[in-house]
Amino acid sequence: MKRNINLISGILLISLVLAGCAKKQATKQEEIVKPELTAEQPVTPPAEEKKPEVKIDFSTVYFGFDSYSIEETSVSLLTEAAKLLRSYPQVAVRLEGHCDERGTTEYNLALGEKRSVAVRDYLVNLGVERSRLATVSFGKEKPADLGHNEISWAKNRRVEFVVEKK
């Protein structure tokens, strides 16, 4: 039942977004499922993207603290990624920007966005169509490494490639 509601609301949302694209703002009403205060339901992770049949691996791009500039060490990696994307024109990717836990939530959301945009712009400059590169920021919400030291933090300041279409 809940799933149905989610599905319907999802469709509603999408259609509204499509309708509202020109106006930039979409507004909608939706019933919220009133939560039960008692039982804590086990959390199911959001549905994973379907893995494409063509196996394409992209390496993650890493960044410095509070930085969104592409480092020298990422250049060859991004060149490879661009080559892959140019040879598989049917592939679209979502660039997910992340930050380490040091930093405030809202600023990190903006920082993650800056990072994913930096990677996108670099790939566009390498000849990949902008329309195939979506950007999204998770700020510090989804760390790759749960540790609280420089090694973990360095692993979390990143942009991950997620293949959306093949």
Partner: peptide, 18 residues
Amino acid sequence: QTDITYQLNAEMRTRWGS
């Protein structure tokens, strides 16, 4: 050559941007 050009281009734009 194309790759190098692209890379140079990207490199240049990024460096110029930063």
